[in-house]
Design a protein around this nucleic acid. Sequence first.
DNA 1: CTGTTAGCGCGTTCAG
DNA 2: CTGAACGCGCTAACAG
Lengths: 332, 332
Amino acid sequence: MPPRASIKDVAALAGVAISTVSKVMKDYPGVSQETKDRVWAACRELNFVPNAIASALSSKSTKRIALIVNLNTETTAFDEVTMQYLAGATVKAREMGYELITVFMSMISHMNSREIISYLQVRGVEGVLICGLSKNDKELIRVVDSQVFKVVLVDGAVSSGSTSSIGVDQRLAQQEVARRTIIDNKAKRILYIAGNKNSFASEERQRGMEELAREMNLKLMVRYGDFSEKKARELTFLYAKNKDAIVCSSDLMAIGAMRALMEMDIFRPVCGFDGIILMAYAGMQMNTIAQNFSDITKQAVEELDRLLTGHSGRIVVTDHELVRMKYTDVIR
Amino acid sequence: MPPRASIKDVAALAGVAISTVSKVMKDYPGVSQETKDRVWAACRELNFVPNAIASALSSKSTKRIALIVNLNTETTAFDEVTMQYLAGATVKAREMGYELITVFMSMISHMNSREIISYLQVRGVEGVLICGLSKNDKELIRVVDSQVFKVVLVDGAVSSGSTSSIGVDQRLAQQEVARRTIIDNKAKRILYIAGNKNSFASEERQRGMEELAREMNLKLMVRYGDFSEKKARELTFLYAKNKDAIVCSSDLMAIGAMRALMEMDIFRPVCGFDGIILMAYAGMQMNTIAQNFSDITKQAVEELDRLLTGHSGRIVVTDHELVRMKYTDVIR
DNA sequence: CTGTTAGCGCGTTCAG
DNA sequence: CTGAACGCGCTAACAG
């Protein structure tokens, strides 16, 4: 394997100037077809691969974006949603010619906003995707507000100047899932297990549920399950008995609730939210919104591209289909 | 936010030469303490963040590595093992000052080796981590053989010149898991559900099982489950009846086997391999090796660093602990 | 110990 | 339509 050829070598072989090669590579106008052919031939012959580093330095555009997700790297616990976020963004970024570096919250949680900015700047990051921003992430929020980077918030919060927001309409989604479960079971007294008070998404879902309760004239009890299976289980033990249905703000909590009910040996309809496959493995089937989180980050990358090419921030609400989950490729 | 300051600005403000600043930044010897202080002060004042792009161009060292994993991005199926690979590598790479770009097999499966090489070269990749290389990945294997990049194979295959290999001793691990299950249950007739013939890891495990069968004088039936839960289930229906135990080459297949047994309403001891949390959700508990795959890629990043700093390829066998899995933080 | 200088590979005027 | 020339921000000799 010969050492990498540079644009200079190509120019020499093709008998043209460096700038001409550059133009050909980027398909700029103003180069004769004949010259183009000669240049392409030379490229192939030398196995020329443009140097993105040099290009970035010269053009001052790195085409690099960062994905910040909340994967818990301490425990071996895994998180299907995060994984889908990651997969979608990674694939889409490549498709659109962006370089994607993934950053876990845990890697930056000990930094202050200035350090986080430096961290990203050093790496030439121009835009950032943040999934599931919580109110607790104070420093990260300051990073967003600093406007140093173009930012797209995924399932997170509102938008401002250079920031876009994207995700399903949490309020509406929660209402639709819950409504179906409630009507199907003619439920009146509902235990709602919310996430926590710091998550924007959880807050919206809760709001949705509260609205629905008023609208349908339900008796609603709200408790916080912290997105934890265990906590949801405990809450169910405590409060499910005199309720007609349990609505959970996440699938994992729904699993916890379901298990508690099984142990209590009583039946109550339960509904979840995300629509993760794990549910099938847990042997459960319930109403959820059938989200594909990788689609959301795919859209988010597109949105970030918009921001980076000069457009302004906005709020994008993605489609969500409310269908009873089908576990076609899973045994059960 | 003022525009990013460059090393030149710092030099000017500190009243020193550019090269001096550079030396200070990299903590090179031969700079007086006083000068250092002045430079650092200037950095802080200007909020100087070194430009890694420019540095890379000049030094010809990008400090960028790629992680290639086999995450299936078509379906929404998720893969705990892959996720752990990913998490470990991402975290460790950052710790060691490497940039990590993650690449899914599906992104490059349609490319030939030359295109893959270009793809990585364009991005300035110097070293590559490949998880779970299979014999089917012909083009990728050619990339490895081309020696263009330093490569560490994780749970994959053997080493050569600039290539290292890392992973548990699949043969031994399979033997230990199986042996315990077999002894505990005084089993004689074993159904072994292997992965497939293309995976190096699966092949090694199978070899281990075959050795063990000879050693313990077992009656062994080998079938290929393709790492699929469904297939393992079918095989179990077909062959489990007159067997004393079922040994599976992966946890997912073990789940499939277990479910088949439940449907058949017969009991047979089953053992898995990886030790994934999903098992607990599936409501099962069985012998596995308790691997932490993120530890493996962490070690792999260290190994890649060794290669990149001039050492030669080798085979590293990581520790594995054979313990009965404990699902402490999972309800059941 | 410190400063000067010549690139790294490419993008981009701006004359020819 | 083409090419010379400069600069991006930094590194690495080398010279003082």
